[in-house]
């Protein structure tokens, strides 16, 4: 059973209130909450795309496996952005693999929570590196682990490889033991976002509900609901959600919000100026965002394909 403080930390993390999470003060170093809080704060920094802050948070001499894992992941994320640092990247991955092996045994000193965290963090790195199979294996997909976070990550990975059926199966299994955990609801919402069951009702309802949660404010939830509304075809409502999210992010919307705003601006409009401007912003601020990369590829593909058609001279008198 988590302490109320830790519960709150987890809740903020789950619902994407990363900004407020990193600004929380740490509990006493002897408190059992200390390490988990530290880990979640570091992960929140990572989610905010600030791996150096995450790294700074972790004591360099720590023996704790969870902290070491979070440090390794931070190093991986740092190296990821720079193609020159391939070695550092591989080193971080190796470190995580070693950590996974370390927590494999029945070591009395390592708690279940720590084991799960190491696995989840490693899986994140593996998934980011494109090692889907390894990530799933690390998360214990299809296994009998009762780690809801692992399930959540498994589900998202399944969804990313277009297997909503497996995602749903994993979710149904988790439902048997996880009761109505907040994270479980988020999992359900994620599946709903992909499958579109009942016109995205699950996702829309969940995000709307959590927006009304008095114990935290998270612009990420607004973004998520904006996306859900976009999927539901409620264009103007989606736009207002996304704008509000951007405002709450201090006028510096994150990549997903900006991406969604680009999409919303482009729909149904004859002029693409607004969408183009937003997209320009997105590609300068977040050059690694999948939408940006994807579109670059598509533009290239277009040029390549267009040359396959012979263009005759323009008819003119």
């Amino acid at each position: 059973m988590d302490s109320p403080e830790l519960y709150h930390v987890k809740q903020q993390f789950t619902l994407g209130a990363y900004k407020s999470l990193v600004s929380l003060s740490l509990p006493d170093a002897d408190s059992p909450d200390y390490i988990p809080t530290l880990v979640y704060q570091a992960r929140a920094h990572l989610a905010l795309d600030d791996p150096s802050a995450a790294l700074a948070l972790v004591p360099s001499d720590t023996e704790n496996v969870a902290l070491r894992a979070v440090a390794a992941l931070s190093r991986y994320v740092t190296a990821e952005a720079d193609p020159a640092k391939e070695e550092a990247r591989d080193a971080a991955l190796e470190q995580l693999r070693d950590l996974c092996v370390e927590v494999e045994g029945d070591d009395e000193d390592v708690s279940e929570w720590e084991k799960g965290t190491v696995r989840v963090l490693s899986a994140i790195a593996f998934a980011r590196a494109g090692e889907i199979e390894e990530a799933l294996e690390t998360l214990g997909a299809g296994g009998e682990t009762h780690n809801l976070e692992a399930v959540a990550y498994t589900v998202q990975i399944y969804l990313s490889i277009h297997r909503p059926d497996l995602a749903r199966k994993e979710f149904e299994r988790a439902k048997r033991w996880a009761e109505d955990d907040l994270l479980l609801q988020l999992i359900e919402a994620s599946i709903g976002l992909v499958t579109g069951r009942d016109a995205y009702a699950d996702a829309h309802a969940f995000f709307s509900e959590q927006l009304a949660n008095p114990s935290l404010t998270s612009p990420r939830l607004l973004t998520a609901r904006g996306v859900a509304r976009l999927l539901r075809g409620e264009l103007s409502a989606a736009k207002s959600d996304l704008e509000e999210a951007a405002v709450q992010m201090g006028g510096k919307p994150d990549s997903e919000t900006l991406g969604a705003q680009t999409v919303a601006a482009g729909l149904g409009a004859a002029k693409t100026a607004e969408a183009d401007q937003l997209f320009g912003q997105l590609s300068t601020e977040h050059p690694g965002f999948p939408l940006v990369l994807d579109l670059e590829r598509k533009a290239h593909l277009f040029d390549e394909l267009a040359t396959k058609f012979a263009v005759p001279p323009v008819a003119a008198a």
């Binding site: 990572l46 989610a47 959540a152 990550y153 990313s160 919402a189 976009l230 999409v263």
Partner: peptide, 10 residues
């Protein structure tokens, strides 16, 4: 449109 429900995953 892109969204990552879980932190740090693509």
């Amino acid at each position: 449109v892109y969204l990552s429900p879980m932190a740090s995953l693509p």
